[in-house]
Write a protein that binds this DNA or RNA. Structure first.
Length: 837
DNA sequence: GACCTGCTGCGGTATG
């Protein structure tokens, strides 16, 4: 390169307040991104805000350097080395594993810039040494989880602990927001802000549909607070969504979700890259695919692994290390690998089965190409013909950045009760002051005076029903000062041990007779086993020996043919965004337009659908009437996700049965539902009578299935969070069955003797919102009522309906329970209406 | 053509 005499202009910030950060970046051959400078400037100006950017694009240092620069500006000539400054920065993350990782990443600038700081994660490394040190003094910067933060707030010296706090950074805020863990974080932030009004809050988030809501929830509803920034980092990386196309579509199944027919293509795809993650939707599916891959490629033994939430932590850590170091060629995983440590060597991501949502697919795609500017690619593997449409729809969603929203949780009173006890422990409170503080959170901004009084009564006297039991009088009022306090040592201990909002599923451990724990399976699975039975778990063929102490003892065997455990997890419905894209793709197909390789491939099947019945347009509700030996089937296709269809099926059955006595058997999936009856249902009359009307929703919708029983089950979480049931000491804990039994007892007692109990109404509300997606259900009915109904009478079961037919044989829901549901729905709706929501 | 779906996450006592 020719020498040039032109002097380079000095960077304007070379001497400014950002200089140390610029120097630090330069030393590593980096250059700050404009958004990083923007955040630093905003921080130094005293602003709070939200940064949204993809992972691996420098948002960590965007958030971290603000407080670092502030400190350096305070000591232009160098800070005194000793003693290290007290807690200034709190870094909140939803994952223990992330805490350790973050700690390592943040340490480098501290040492290189010569800051006399201490930095520790309270979680992650749970060694007794760090714990006891933190009991006396906290580090300058602390990486922690929402639960650990709540524990800190329960210390009686909480206020002095945070006396020097300058900044709180909440990592992965999109993950927390929309859950009770997020609300717990909001409450903690409100507490900290009341002590440190100048404190700055920065959130880090992936792209979601409602970033402004996310910022509001994070920054709180304090009157007169500055609006706060939303800083956009490097977001739309190049993301490629493609698919493995079945070689012979006419031989590809019309139903099913395993997808092992695609094994050869998946093996080829794994071979193309250095390291791959194969995502599946369920835990049992990872076990099945792991075995299948091993069978296809025995030479991959030791090079492939599996990862899901029921595997022992040690095993998962081993897998994550193998992925990070590049020792593993392929890991089959559930969303347990969605978040967390950065696996830079991963260059191939496959998704088996429906992606379910745009955000979810983006998250998974982002696990590859984990460097700024790199291309992220995800390859979808259909497990049945119809999923090809979902792939095309998901790509549309990714291209249009039609990412799902995370809706904030509104005033959960179980968590408020927990928080009130935490604060009573952490120095005590005066009711009016705490109420004002709680109302500065987004979640409780609309908290009613009555609700607040009810919560106070609940923690001090146990509410109306438990008045007679001293153990529920957890908080007492000091006669002289009027402060609410916890005096009882046992109450304090039990409370600290049950802080948090996560309620575990029923499970029992699986362990070698002499040796390592493998993970956990459900009690119901073990109950089916006899000694000597074989099953495959954690990728290992095992022989069941016996159950003792909540542990299933096993020994190794060689025969890989055996049962595979199944876990009853939540049912993820197709997201509203993806469902809309799906309807749009069908609409195109109905006009004879087949864009892209997936739609081209599925064309023969959709031709069958069109010949036998019809391909519905986006504004059409397709209803297929089919008569078989089994009876009269109605197949109805709103394309709104399984949960909504569950509610709709119950509603439709109820409305039809009001016209004529008739009983139905149901099945549903993400596309629609089947109502099967021995006689033909009076469909036309029902439509005329308002089958699809959203009008009488509040009277007609039981909002559904076995609502009381569902609420009763939901109450387990509420009872746990509110502190009604104590889980017991670690390792000697109560079984989940016991917990379910005692929380069920509370539910029954409250329902009968304490009709005003607000936790019971909360259980009903949570069932409606979470398990039945009632607001989406209402919107769906409005959409259906505004569109056209198209009824066809196919001779045979067409492709769209076929999976419903298969599904029903698996788990039939009879309309016996519908009658019960309908009876109960009025109760539910009255309660729902009572809460004013 | 008659065919196996159901995720993730945290925290904690006591020690004669």
């Amino acid at each position: 390169m020719a020498a040039t005499t032109t002097p380079r202009p000095r960077s304007p910030s070379a001497k400014g307040p950002l200089a140390p950060a610029e120097r630090w970046f330069k030393a590593r051959g980096w250059k700050p991104f404009p958004f990083q400078r923007e955040v630093w400037d905003a921080y130094l100006a005293g602003d709070s805000g939200l940064i949204h950017a993809a992972t691996g694009t420098g948002k960590t240092y965007a958030a971290w350097m603000g407080p670092v620069l502030e400190w350096m500006a305070e000591f232009p000539k160098g800070a005194p080395a000793k003693p290290p400054p007290p807690l200034r920065i709190l870094w909140i993350t939803p994952l223990r594993a992330l805490a350790a990782d973050t700690e390592a990443a943040l340490l480098a600038p501290l040492t290189e810039l010569g800051l006399p700081w201490t930095l520790q994660s309270r979680t992650g490394d749970t060694s007794a040494k760090i714990r006891s040190r933190q009991r006396t003094r906290l580090p300058t910067a602390l990486v922690t989880t929402p639960e650990s933060l709540a524990l800190l707030l329960s210390r009686d010296d909480a206020r002095t602990l945070f006396a020097d706090l300058r900044a709180v950074i909440v990592d992965e805020w999109h993950e927390l927001m929309g859950t009770k863990r997020g609300v717990q974080t909001e409450l903690a932030l409100a507490r900290l802000r009341s002590w440190r009004p100048q404190m700055r809050t920065w959130g880090l988030s992936a792209t979601i549909g409602n970033l402004d809501d996310a910022r509001e929830a994070l920054l709180g509803a304090t009157p007169g607070r500055p609006p706060g920034r939303v800083v956009r980092g490097l977001v739309p990386k190049n993301i490629v969504v493609d698919a493995l196309i079945p070689p012979r579509i006419e031989r590809f199944p019309w139903a099913g979700h395993l997808g092992t027919q695609m094994l050869p293509q998946v093996v080829d795809a794994i071979e193309e890259g250095e390291t791959a993650i194969v995502f599946t939707n369920t835990r049992s599916q990872t076990e099945i695919w792991y075995q299948a891959l091993l069978e296809a490629r025995p030479d991959w033994a030791g090079l492939i692994a599996l990862h899901h939430g029921s595997l022992d932590r040690a095993k998962r850590d081993w897998v994550e290390d193998g992925l990070r170091s590049g020792k593993l060629r392929c890991v089959v995983a559930t969303s347990s690998l969605d978040l967390g440590v950065d696996f830079s060597p991963v260059d191939r991501v496959l998704q088996i089965g429906s992606p379910k949502g745009v955000a979810r697919l983006l998250q998974r795609a982002g696990r590859s190409g984990h460097r700024p500017g790199a291309v992220s690619r995800v390859t979808c593997v259909p497990t049945n013909v119809l999923e090809l449409i979902e792939v095309a729809a998901a790509r549309d969603g990714v291209e249009a950045i039609a990412v799902e929203s995370r809706l904030p949780v509104e005033r959960p009173l179980d968590l408020l009760a927990q928080h009130v006890v935490t604060v009573a422990l952490g120095g005590g409170f005066l009711p009016d002051e705490l109420l004002a503080e709680v109302r500065t959170t987004g979640a409780y901004a609309g908290l009613l005076d009555d609700e607040w009084r009810w919560v106070l009564d609940f923690v001090t006297r146990g509410g109306d029903a438990l008045r007679a039991y001293p153990e529920f009088q957890r908080v007492v009022v000091d006669d002289e000062t009027g402060r609410y306090l916890v005096r009882d040592k046992g109450v304090a201990r039990r409370h600290r041990m049950s802080i948090g909002t996560i309620v575990s599923d029923a499970s029992i451990a699986v362990q070698y007779l002499r040796g390592a724990r493998l993970g956990t399976v459900e009690e119901s699975f073990v109950a089916r086993l006899n000694p000597g039975d074989r099953f495959v778990f954690a990728g290992k063929p095992l022989e069941f020996v016996r159950v003792r102490d909540m542990t299933a003892w096993v020994r190794r065997t060689t025969n890989t043919k055996g049962l595979i455990p199944r876990w009853m997890g939540a049912r993820m419905p197709l997201s509203g965004e993806l469902a809309a894209s799906l309807r749009a793709r069908l609409e195109e197909a109905s006009r004879g337009e087949f864009r892209g390789p997936e739609m081209q491939a599925i064309r023969p099947i959709l031709d069958v659908q069109a010949r036998w019945s019809r391909i519905p347009r986006a504004d059409e509700l397709l209803i297929e009437r089919v008569k078989t030996r089994e009876g009269h089937h109605l197949f109805i296709f709103p394309f709104e996700g399984r949960l909504v269809h569950e509610g709709l099926a119950a509603l439709f059955a109820y409305r039809i049965s009001r016209l004529t006595p008739i009983s139905f058997t149901f099945s549903m999936n993400d596309y629609g539902m089947e109502l099967l009856s021995p006689e033909a249902a009076p469909l036309d009359a029902a439509l005329k009578a308002g089958l699809l009307s959203a009008h009488n929703l509040l009277q007609d919708v039981p909002a559904s299935l076995n609502a009381t029983e569902m609420a009763r089950r939901q109450f387990r979480e509420i009872a746990r969070v509110a502190g009604l049931v104590f889980q017991g000491f670690p390792h000697a804990g109560k079984s989940v069955k016991q917990l379910q039994a005692s929380s069920g007892l509370f539910f029954d007692v409250f329902t009968r003797y304490d009709p005003g109990n607000l936790l019971v109404s909360q259980a009903h509300r949570e069932v409606l919102e979470r398990q039945l997606e009632s607001s989406r259900l209402g919107r769906t009915l409005e959409r259906l009522a505004a569109g056209n109904v198209v009824i066809t009478n196919p001779k045979r079961t067409p492709p769209l309906a076929f999976p419903l037919l298969v599904d029903r044989t698996r788990n039939a829901v009879t309309s016996e329970s519908v009658t019960d549901r309908v009876q109960r729905m009025k109760l539910v709706l009255e309660k729902y209406a009572d809460t004013g929501k």
